[in-house]
Simulated scan of single mutants.
Amino acid sequence: MKKPIIFLFLLFVNFTAFAQGKLFIIGGGSRPASMIDEMIDEAGVRFEGYAVVLPMSSADTDAAIISGKKQFSDNGISSVTAFNFLMGETPSTSHLDSIRNAKLIFISGGSQIRFMDVVAGTAIERAIWDCYHNGGTIAGTSAGAAVMSEKMITGDQVLYPEADGGFRVIEKGNTKLSNGLGLVKNAIIDQHFVQRSRYNRLITLAIENPSLKCIGIDESTAILVSGNKVKVIGQSQVLVFDGSKGKKREMGEKLGMKDVRLSVYLDGDTFSLK
């Protein structure tokens, strides 16, 4: 009885390992036409297939749908639809099939927690994964970027829940993580990074999660992920903190680490997630 179970497990692992899709992860802010152009071309949706906008991160889903569709229509793409799923609802088979067979899925900005509250553990999440495995491109901006990683930054501070003005400390247990879509297994994604000076929280996560690359994507900038290869696209920078060879030290709640590696990438640069 054990052999079929082991076989199915290995089949699932291999299927996950060889996903054929791409990820186009945008750090938020304005989205230059040239960047959206590249997203469309990488997805292959200019000449075939269609795009789907998922606006559930947004507090104003109607506006997110209009904005999401406009970025495609401004670039000559008319084959775009949108689905605003509600928490707890049972999606129709036709809507799930539309997600599953899309060439490109675009996840709007807003709150990553709001998005995951709707899709986590549901047929919607499985359909997104199916799209990715079928060769589709999964794209997202801001909150739609945060949901890409398995360990997702929520934006909340555990030790200072009432703090205003960002993360002012590098202390253990302060940066709250939750479960994202898990399309990126070996990295944590942060957004609006340079613009909002989110260094402290990503440095903290690099120290606390040395096996993961911690990637900060600035506004009007994106990363294109194909397997383990990453390409930077856009107007600003992508910062990567790597604590894999660092030496961690703690002093009370304070965190320290020697030899944290920092790389700052610009448009056209590439790096590996390995």
Score class of each variant (00 low, 15 high):
residue 167 F to A: 06
residue 128 I to L: 15
residue 155 G to I: 09
residue 106 F to S: 05
residue 167 F to L: 07
residue 145 A to E: 06
residue 203 I to W: 09
residue 136 G to N: 07
residue 165 G to Y: 03
residue 170 I to H: 10
residue 139 A to F: 12
residue 99 I to Y: 12
residue 127 A to Y: 00
residue 128 I to S: 09
residue 152 M to T: 01
residue 185 K to A: 15
residue 99 I to E: 14
residue 112 Q to R: 04
residue 98 S to Y: 04
residue 213 K to M: 07
residue 175 T to P: 02
residue 96 L to K: 12
residue 205 L to N: 11
residue 129 W to M: 04
residue 118 V to T: 14
residue 149 S to W: 10
residue 192 H to V: 15
residue 186 N to E: 06
residue 203 I to D: 07
residue 194 V to I: 08
residue 101 N to E: 06
residue 204 T to V: 05
residue 173 G to P: 00
residue 207 I to Q: 07
residue 138 I to C: 10
residue 94 S to Q: 11
residue 190 D to H: 10
residue 150 E to K: 15
residue 199 Y to D: 11
residue 143 A to N: 02
residue 183 L to Q: 04
residue 138 I to S: 08
residue 110 G to Y: 00
residue 158 V to M: 02
residue 195 Q to V: 07
residue 115 F to C: 01
residue 99 I to H: 14
residue 167 F to Q: 11
residue 183 L to V: 04
residue 187 A to R: 05
residue 133 H to D: 03
residue 153 I to P: 01
residue 176 K to P: 00
residue 189 I to P: 12
residue 203 I to G: 05
residue 206 A to L: 02
residue 147 V to R: 03
residue 196 R to W: 12
residue 105 I to V: 15
residue 207 I to F: 08
residue 208 E to A: 06
residue 173 G to W: 03
residue 163 A to Y: 01
residue 123 A to L: 07
residue 200 N to L: 08
residue 102 A to P: 10
residue 109 G to L: 13
residue 198 R to S: 08
residue 96 L to D: 11
residue 134 N to S: 14
residue 213 K to A: 08
residue 135 G to M: 00
residue 100 R to G: 08
residue 164 D to Q: 04
residue 123 A to N: 04
residue 186 N to R: 03
residue 107 I to V: 10
residue 163 A to G: 04
residue 205 L to K: 03
residue 173 G to N: 05
residue 180 G to S: 15
residue 98 S to K: 14
residue 115 F to V: 00
residue 103 K to E: 06
residue 105 I to T: 06
residue 154 T to N: 00
residue 204 T to S: 14
